[in-house]
């Protein structure tokens, strides 16, 4: 997972620096007056959107919860009562007056000195810390899987919508075919074929969730394509690549943005059940894995509610908050919904 984050960061820096150098060569200044003006305009636009978002109670409360989750994921090792719950030395050993799973207690344990506010699981791992670390897996999947899915979806949608005719027919039939495939058995099979690693979880979620994006992008491109400014751009000799990049794509972007947030919630939910059904990476702490362990090691027979409740609530609340933000964004950016 670390190398994934690292490579993403590297690619981002490379893209940004190449762009900066090319721009410097062309203009010899960082910001031309036109660009400054354009940036100011963008800023006012963003502020208007932000105000509208602020006004949406449901969306804004979802956003606040999301921030809390992101903080959880980023600072997990520092917030957690146990440094790294997977470390063997940090696990609570069995003793005469301490049996695992142990119910929640705020008093430090007499053996390792750790506090277990949510109790421990069957091998003495701290449930509170595991729940915190689980946020990392979910956020990573949400981010990277959605990145894959949006990239594929937007590309297919743009190509199908812009070029129309045969490419549209072929690409959309391909998309429909993916929509028809039952995704759960497909994921089970793909995970068995590819092997159970965290990267594969991300890839599998990414390549099974793109069709909805492709459909949304295509329908939006179809309406944008007919507008007058596209015709004007083409009349003064803009090529296809230029038209798509400069005129079509920015107009499609807002809708994609709202859809992306919804996709993240689906990706997080999907990761949780892939892990719950034991198809995920066994070495990765995730909410689904905690639930899987609880299910298989009889938390439900022994009434170890503290082992089951935190991850369940964490998943539900996380998915819910992403969905709330997604709907709010949809309401702001989708012109069909805005007027109501």
């Amino acid at each position: 997972m670390n190398w994934l984050a690292l490579s993403a960061l590297l690619i981002a820096t490379a893209v940004v620096s190449v762009w900066m150098i090319r721009k410097w060569h062309r203009d010899k200044v960082i910001l031309t007056p036109t660009e400054k003006e354009r940036l100011m305009l963008k800023l006012t636009e963003w502020r208007a959107s932000w105000d509208m978002f602020r006004g949406n109670k449901l969306g804004f409360s979802g956003f606040v919860i999301l921030i809390a989750y992101i903080i959880m994921a980023l600072f997990a090792p520092w917030i957690a009562t146990v440094g790294d719950p997977m470390e063997t030395s940090n696990q609570e050993p069995e003793h005469a007056d301490w049996d695992n799973p142990h119910s929640p207690t705020l008093a430090p344990s007499p053996y390792t000195g750790f506090v277990h506010p949510f109790g421990t699981d069957n091998i003495g791992r701290d449930v509170f810390s595991m729940t915190l670390f689980g946020a990392r897996a979910s956020m990573a999947v949400g981010l990277f899987a959605t990145l894959i899915s949006v990239t594929v979806g937007v590309t297919v949608g743009l190509l199908a919508g812009y070029f129309g005719r045969y490419s549209d027919e072929i690409l959309m039939r391909f998309t429909d075919y993916f929509l028809v495939l039952p995704w759960f058995p497909l994921m089970i099979i793909l995970m068995t074929v590819l092997g159970q690693t965290f990267t594969n979880v991300i890839i599998v979620i990414g390549i099974t969730s793109w069709p909805s994006t492709a459909r949304i992008v295509r329908s939006q491109v179809l309406t944008v394509k007919e507008r007058a400014f596209i015709e004007r751009a083409r009349a003064i000799g803009a090529g296809d690549a230029h038209t798509i990049r400069v005129h079509v794509f920015p107009n499609v972007l807002p809708l994609v943005f709202a859809n992306t947030v919804l996709l993240i919630s689906i990706a997080i939910f999907t990761e949780a059940f892939i892990a719950f059904f034991g198809l995920g990476d066994p070495d990765m702490v995730s909410w689904g894995t905690i639930l899987e362990n609880a299910y298989y090691f009889g938390a439900f027979d022994t009434n170890a509610w503290w082992w089951v409740t935190p991850p369940s609530i964490a998943i539900s609340l996380c998915v819910l908050s992403f969905a709330m933000v997604g709907y709010a964004l949809d309401e702001i950016y989708n012109p069909k919904l805005r007027s109501r």
């Binding site: 939910f269 059940f273 639930l291 009434n303 089951v308 998943i315 539900s316 998915v319 819910l320 969905a323």
Partner: peptide, 22 residues
Amino acid sequence: LLFYTMPTFILALALLIFFCGN
């Protein structure tokens, strides 16, 4: 919205524990 976003397997588990188990 609550039921829409609650993952199916968690809902199923909760029902199983309360109504079939406890």
